[in-house]
Design a protein around this nucleic acid. Structure first.
Lengths: 157, 157
DNA sequence: TATTGTTATACTCTATAACTATA
DNA sequence: TATAGTTATAGAGTATAACAATA
């Protein structure tokens, strides 16, 4: 018997009490991110990209010649976990690795023309997808949100 | 030779260009969350809790008698992944499982006195820890941030 | 036939240690 | 001795399918 005999004290859907969790910023950030992330993921998957590989492609596009350690630091991830992502992007022809003559331990990363175009196109699609969720905010709320998030991020602890 | 011979065009630390990523809300949310999450994680670890087990304990405390499927829905996670977490909390003596007489498929979850006290104490510690990061925001910015995040979260797509 | 809790499993993400080649 | 890239691996976190008990 599905759906039809709710007892009076049934907690269904959003009728769950919460006196603590909802006042924690960490929880609120996570929940908001859980709304946005799958949308971005889906949009990027159409172009064969994951969120993290798009992030890499984007930073490489903006910083031609960046090396893997710098890229890892910029995205706050481990060098070791970057390797397969860079491999993928290279094999797909979106970026190129070339030895730095002055320090042959390092690889200078650059985006190819195809890579740069993909980055720009994918970025447009993500912005559009985010708008379907963030559209409920007016321009000022949105600008404020971005500024506040940036301040949190820059906070050293 | 560490640190001493930076070439003029070295990108160190935050000197990385970014024309796209930083304007995406998903990226900003993730970065802000990455600041907060480890702090909460560390604080909770002192009491033998993970972030997810604290979330469960908190919702159970606020909703005595809630069953696992409802809890999973409230936290937007899979029932199957809840099982071991509930097991842990029960074995630690923070919650109790008891068969619902009217529907013997279900377990009514309730927090023990110890569990409720732990929830309250841990919540205080998390708030305090979050303040070390969110302290840079004034009262109004903070209230606004929470309200905006809640609106994003409630946005149906 | 549908639902609850459960188990098993797989897949992604992330973190750590160790290796090589270069400096 | 230290660093860049790499490999292997282990641990979280998450998602899916299937089962027994119950409705």
């Amino acid at each position: 018997m599905p759906q039809l005999d709710k007892s009076p004290d049934d907690r269904v859907g959003q009728n769950v009490e919460d006196t603590v969790l909802g006042d924690l910023i960490g929880y609120r950030l996570k929940r908001a991110y859980m709304q946005i992330q799958p949308v971005a993921q889906q949009v990027l998957a159409e172009d064969g990209l994951r969120v993290v590989s798009f992030s890499c492609l984007s930073i490489i596009t903006d910083n031609p010649g960046i090396v893997q350690t710098e890229l890892a630091a910029a995205l706050q991830m481990e060098r070791s976990n970057l390797v397969v992502i860079i491999d993928e992007l290279e094999q797909s022809g979106f970026i190129a690795r070339k030895k730095v003559p002055t320090d042959r331990r390092r690889y200078a990363l650059t985006a190819t023309l195809r890579g740069r175009r993909l980055r720009d196109r994918a970025a447009d699609k993500i912005r559009q997808a985010e708008d379907t969720i963030v559209g409920c905010l007016d321009k000022e709320d949105r600008t404020r949100l971005m500024a506040v998030l940036e301040r949190l991020e820059d906070q050293r602890t």
